[in-house]
Computed example of a mutant assay.
Amino acid sequence: MLYLFLTFVVLLLIVMGTRGLTLLFGLGINVISVLALLILIADGFNILITTGIIAMVILVVAIYMNVDNTKTASTAFKTSLLIMVVILLITVPLEFWANAQGLAAENQDELESFSLAAGISYPQLAISIIVINSLGVISETSVAITSGLNEIVENKPTLTPTEIFNDGFSVGNKILNTQTNTLLFNFFSSTFPLFFVIHSLGYGVGEIVNDKLVVAEVLTTLICTIGVILTVPITSYLVYRGSKKVTAN
């Protein structure tokens, strides 16, 4: 594992030069942030408030440390924050209604000798997992769309609001194709072991659809995908507002 990490560092520095050091520093901060989140939750801090604070730290590092254009970084950060709020509004009621949080029957062998009195709210923990899971793909999508759309607006300052939105959707559609596939592949790769267990136990379609672990993974993937899709109109609107202010001044 150490050799693999060193290979990653060397290749990163060869490809990106000194900018690779900034990326490594940002990755280090985000790793520490996630570990801090786990420790704070385990120590009894409010899960949702702690997740919100750590999520903002992760977004600041992921966006502002990797984007040179301040205008692009600011728009991408605002977009990511708005999407995070939308994800929370969707996830909070959905997790309580779906009742897919916590551990399932497939985990009983591993947990047989352990106490389940963890002292935390599993619904809130599930919400935290979805929010943290969505940050990477949302920040990446918002930065990509904002960068492309800002460049178009700067080269064509006479664009009308309709044209800006059309260009935003044009840029966003190309990015959404790859991001949606990324989320889909992540879903299947993370659930391969689970589906092997389900197959070996002879689950029927109804049992699979109602299995807690399957539902939790599906909810996470769908909510993250909704967040990525909403990035397109929100980013287009924010870029339009920014260009309108510049024109007015």
Rank of each mutant, 00 (worst) to 15 (best):
G136F: 09
I49F: 13
E95R: 11
K78C: 05
P123L: 08
A117I: 04
G136Q: 13
K78W: 03
L59P: 08
G119C: 06
I32Q: 05
E110C: 03
I127M: 11
P123K: 11
F96K: 06
S121I: 12
A100K: 13
V60W: 14
L38D: 11
F114V: 12
G26S: 01
I53G: 09
L111Q: 02
P93T: 00
T72S: 07
G119Y: 00
M56Q: 14
T70H: 09
T70P: 12
I53E: 13
A73W: 00
S115V: 04
Y122H: 08
L48T: 12
I129V: 15
I63W: 02
G44N: 01
Q124K: 11
A118P: 11
F77T: 02
N30H: 00
L35S: 15
T50F: 00
A36W: 04
A98N: 12
A117S: 04
F25H: 01
F77E: 00
A117L: 02
F96Q: 06
V61I: 10
L24M: 02
L59E: 15
F45D: 08
D68W: 06
I49H: 14
Y122M: 10
A36V: 14
S80L: 01
M84C: 08
M84T: 12
V60H: 14
L111A: 12
V85M: 04
L81M: 15
P123Y: 07
V85Q: 03
S128L: 07
I132H: 01
A105L: 11
S134L: 05
K71W: 11
E106M: 03
A105S: 14
L40P: 09
Y64V: 04
T50A: 00
P93E: 00
V131D: 05
A126L: 10
L89C: 10
L88F: 15
Q124L: 08
F77V: 02
L125Q: 08
M65D: 10
I39N: 12
S115N: 01
K71T: 13
V34N: 03
L125I: 10
V34H: 06
A55V: 05
K71I: 13
N133M: 15
M65W: 09
L27D: 04
I49W: 14
N99M: 10
L23G: 08
I41S: 05
W97A: 14
T22M: 08
L103P: 01
R19H: 06
N30W: 01
P93R: 00
S121P: 04
I120W: 06
A105F: 09
A105D: 13
G136E: 07
W97N: 07
N66G: 09
A104K: 04
L94R: 06
D68T: 09
L103H: 01
F25D: 01
I47Q: 07
T75L: 09
N30L: 05
E112G: 12
V92D: 00
N69I: 05
I129K: 14
E110Y: 10
A73K: 11
S113M: 06
E106P: 04
T79M: 02
V92Q: 04
G136R: 12
N69G: 11
T22I: 11
A76K: 00
I58H: 03
R19M: 12
L35A: 13
V131I: 09
T70A: 14
V60Y: 15
S134H: 03
L82F: 02
A73D: 06
S115D: 02
G44W: 07
L88M: 13
E110P: 04
V86Y: 09
I132V: 15
